[in-house]
Computed example of a mutant assay.
Amino acid sequence: MSKKTAVVVCPGRGTYNKAELGYLGRHFPDAGMLAAFDRQRDAAGQDTLSALDGAERFSMATHTRGDNASGLIFAATLGDFLSIDREDIEVVAVTGNSMGWYSALACAGALAPEEGFRVANTMGTLMQAALIGGQLVHPFLGDDWRPDPARKTGLLGVVAEIDARPDHTLALSIDLGGMLVLAGDEAGLKAFEGAVEPVDGRFPMRLGNHAAFHTHLQAPVAEQGRAALPADLFGQPALPLIDGRGAVWWPHATDNQALWDYTLGHQVTESYDFTRAIAVAAREFAPDLFIVTGPGTTLGGAVAQSLVLADWRGMGDKAGFKARQEAEPLLVSMGMAEQRGLATGQ
Rank of each mutant, 00 (worst) to 15 (best):
P329I: 13
A106K: 00
D163H: 04
F234D: 06
M60R: 10
P251Q: 09
T263P: 00
Y23G: 05
E90A: 14
Y16H: 12
L207V: 14
V119L: 12
E186V: 12
I73N: 04
N17H: 08
R202F: 07
D143V: 07
A247D: 15
D143P: 03
V91E: 05
L289N: 02
T275K: 05
D163N: 15
L34P: 06
F321C: 08
D143G: 13
R245D: 10
Q135G: 08
N209C: 14
V137T: 12
A282R: 01
E193Y: 08
G244K: 13
A112C: 08
D144V: 06
D317M: 09
R151A: 09
H252V: 01
Q224L: 12
A106D: 00
F28R: 04
A323D: 09
F58Q: 01
E284F: 02
A6H: 04
R206M: 13
P329N: 07
G294H: 01
C107K: 00
A108S: 13
P11F: 11
G45H: 01
R86A: 15
D47I: 11
R206I: 05
T15R: 10
A327G: 04
A219S: 12
I84A: 00
A212Y: 04
I89E: 00
T122F: 12
M334S: 13
I89Q: 04
P204F: 02
V94I: 11
H214R: 11
D67M: 13
T293L: 07
A304E: 14
R202V: 14
A211E: 06
G235C: 07
A279W: 05
E284H: 04
R324F: 09
P220M: 15
F28C: 07
Q325A: 08
G133A: 02
R340L: 03
D67E: 11
R13S: 14
A31R: 14
R283C: 03
K3F: 01
D243A: 07
I291S: 00
G154E: 13
R283I: 01
L170A: 13
G66K: 06
A76W: 00
P198F: 08
L309R: 11
T293R: 08
G22H: 12
E193H: 08
V303E: 04
S98Q: 03
T48Y: 14
L82S: 08
G244P: 12
H138E: 03
V9R: 02
A104K: 02
G300M: 13
E87C: 13
E90D: 11
I132F: 09
V292D: 06
L342S: 03
G178V: 05
